[in-house]
């Protein structure tokens, strides 16, 4: 049978079947959607955090903290050393008071903490932006080690170290999401299989007739596979709509005056690849469910 006729037959019959059993099919679609919302939610969070970390990494910042009680000459010497480095794009001095002000802006809930302390614990520092060609761990490590040896410098910290630790956390989060989402997805596959198994039994006579008139097994089963694929596709589309709504709500929350730090995240929805992967996952779940349902069809007249 020609491929176009085969597909037209299978999907036509599948849509006909779905239209006739909306309630039963809806349960499979909802379960698939739920599993993909769980999985997709974790992926969305980790995707955005990875984006944040990537942008953070791209900034190429190094912060050189000065010792308490540093002298003006020491401050000038450090500034000169930084200025002379060919790896530097720009730098600025941040006084202890400026550091405290920034802390209050970034952590509004914790800002009052500084008020209760006798002294401002935040040190003065130089915030340095490294040239793009040197934004790698080796170059940043070398720069930091050099500056740490300067008189008056307490410590030099570059973002990559922190970023690496955060990346471990993000990967962990993604792993948890995959495991949780995987568990729910298995439940979705089983639900789809049961829905289609009921359909197979309900279409028993039709299956018997098709086999008797000379339809191949691919024709007999094709409609059920198509139905599983459609259910999975609808479930994944539904999940993406929910996730998009959540993303939009998150963006509205941030732009409406949420914690400033959140603005750094720049909430983004899935890119095309992740979008397609989630759709593919939904379709695969439906197909696997349909394949599992064939045990009922196998026992019918052959």
């Amino acid at each position: 049978m020609r491929a176009d006729r085969y597909l037209k037959l299978c999907f036509g019959e599948a849509l006909r079947g779905l239209a006739g059993r909306r309630r039963a099919a809806s349960s499979a679609v909802l379960i698939i959607a739920l599993s993909l919302v769980v999985l997709g939610g974790f992926l969305l969070v980790s995707h955005n955090l990875n984006g944040l970390l990537h942008r953070w990494r791209e900034r190429g910042h190094v912060q050189v903290f000065l010792e308490p009680g540093f002298t003006v000459s020491q401050q000038q010497a450090v500034a000169d050393a930084i200025r002379e480095s060919p790896e530097i794009d720009s730098f600025r001095f941040m006084s202890a008071d400026e550091a405290a002000t920034q802390f209050r802006n970034d952590f509004q809930e914790l800002g009052d903490l500084l008020t209760f302390l006798e002294e401002n614990p935040l040190p003065a520092s130089f915030v340095i932006t490294v040239r793009e060609r040197s934004r790698n761990e080796g170059a940043l490590l070398t720069l930091a080690e050099n500056w740490e040896t300067l008189p008056g410098v307490d410590a030099a910290q570059y973002d990559l170290e922190v970023i690496r630790r955060l990346e471990l956390g993000v990967n962990g989060l993604r792993f948890v999401g995959i495991v949780l989402g995987g568990v729910v997805l298995i439940a979705a596959i089983i639900t789809t299989a049961n829905v289609i198994r009921v359909l197979v039994v309900a279409r028993r006579r039709e299956i018997i007739v098709l086999r008797l008139v000379g339809a191949t097994e691919s024709v007999v089963r094709g409609r059920f596979l198509a139905e599983g694929a459609i259910q999975g596709f609808l479930g994944s589309v539904f999940a993406l709509m929910i996730l998009y709504a959540i993303c939009r709500i998150g963006v509205s929350f941030v732009t409406a005056g949420g914690p400033p730090l959140l603005s750094l995240v720049e909430l983004q929805f899935f890119n095309v690849v992740l979008f397609a992967q989630l759709i593919g996952l939904g379709v695969a779940a439906g197909l696997i469910g349909a394949l599992l349902a064939f045990g009922a069809a196998d026992s019918l007249e052959q």
Binding site: M1, R2, R5, K8, L9, L210, V213, G214, A215, V219
Partner: peptide
């Protein structure tokens, strides 16, 4: 039957 054995619509 026609559709199932490969005839056109």
């Amino acid at each position: 039957v026609g559709l199932a054995v490969g005839f056109s619509f």
